[in-house]
Design a protein around this nucleic acid. Structure first.
Lengths: 174, 174
DNA sequence: CCACGTCGGTTCGCTCGCTGAACCGAGTTG
DNA sequence: CAACTCGGTTCAGCGAGCGAACCGACGTGG
């Protein structure tokens, strides 16, 4: 693969979590699963693959392996802070799937635990105090090296989504 | 694979974009690349794989293929609205990589085009008017079928990130 | 006219990773 | 001591990814 890990943090992230099984394991971890066999049964994943993926996640610091009992010693896997911070990725994957991969509406809603309000993960500029969309994103060099510019973006056909309106807010093209 | 596509929109999304090359192709599309050879050279991806991935993306409605010239007829690939709405996934992958996969700081910053303010993709409850994190997420059944509950989440070791503070949504560095 | 270059692919062996199934070791249960 | 649990490892087979070659439609230059 083009190892543009240096120039692109997306490529860097994919080096750790850029694989279907890994994402599903993490999803299950967010759902509270911790044990090898829980993951294995839920995902119906080959044992060897699960073992290898968990090892990778632990090696990278995304999960920890700790004994939850001695005699016989058995281990469980938990998300670290690094792992917990993957949540926006999983949430955005879920919301995109909700929106574009089904007609019958989301099977599960995510809400703010404190108040039960549905989670809304859209771009919002705290400076302009306004929502915006992908076409309103620009890029500029960061403190790290290896910047590659991103020209202004333009979509192709503005095909309508299957179901409802984009959202209550989200102005942009509308 | 456990085809829990019905129960889980994450699995459904992964069925379309759950593959390393596909994500990198989409990243390049967001950066403005459109032609077969642009993708191929930038990613150094095998031609056959690129052709197959683009075909899949077009089949699923994420990109369109349209001729940009006749004689000889040549095609370009563009993001549809469905594709453009993948941006939160890519942005969150990028921000996670910025934060956890490098010490030297992000190579590229994404900003709101209108005002240049850095993009901040964190959870924010518009009801409580407060930011929150993964551990403050709960779930409940949605309108679709097949709900699977998510118990309250608890991380393992609250290991510190390499760089700055976690919460208090990091404003633009400047 | 013919050789060469460009662009968007397809075809072809080879290899490498995923797969399901079997096996294993430490320990508990009956 | 046989059976079961849990967390793995090992192994043969197969399919997906790989680099390289080839292809077809067209423009270019000699």
């Amino acid at each position: 693969m083009s190892d543009d890990t240096d120039a692109c943090s997306i490529a860097a992230s994919l080096g750790i979590v850029g694989d279907r099984w890994t994402i599903l394991i993490l999803r299950d971890a967010f759902r509270g699963l911790r044990r090898f066999d829980e993951f294995r049964r839920d995902l119906d994943i080959p044992r060897a693959v699960l073992a290898e993926r968990l090892r990778r996640l632990v090696d990278h610091g995304v999960m920890t392996r700790r004994a939850y009992q001695e005699r016989p010693v058995r281990h469980e896997y938990r998300l670290t802070r690094m792992g917990l911070e993957l949540s926006p990725i999983l949430v955005s994957l879920m919301q995109w799937g909700d929106r574009w991969c089904r007609e019958d509406g989301p099977p599960t809603l995510l809400v703010h635990a404190d108040c039960g309000t549905e989670i809304d993960l859209h771009f919002h500029c705290w400076h302009c105090d306004t929502p915006f969309s992908a076409t309103d994103i620009a890029s500029r060099p960061g403190p790290g090296e290896h910047h590659r510019p991103m020209p202004p973006l333009e979509g192709a056909d503005p095909e309508e989504p299957p179901g409802d309106e984009p959202s209550s807010h989200r102005a942009a093209t509308g």
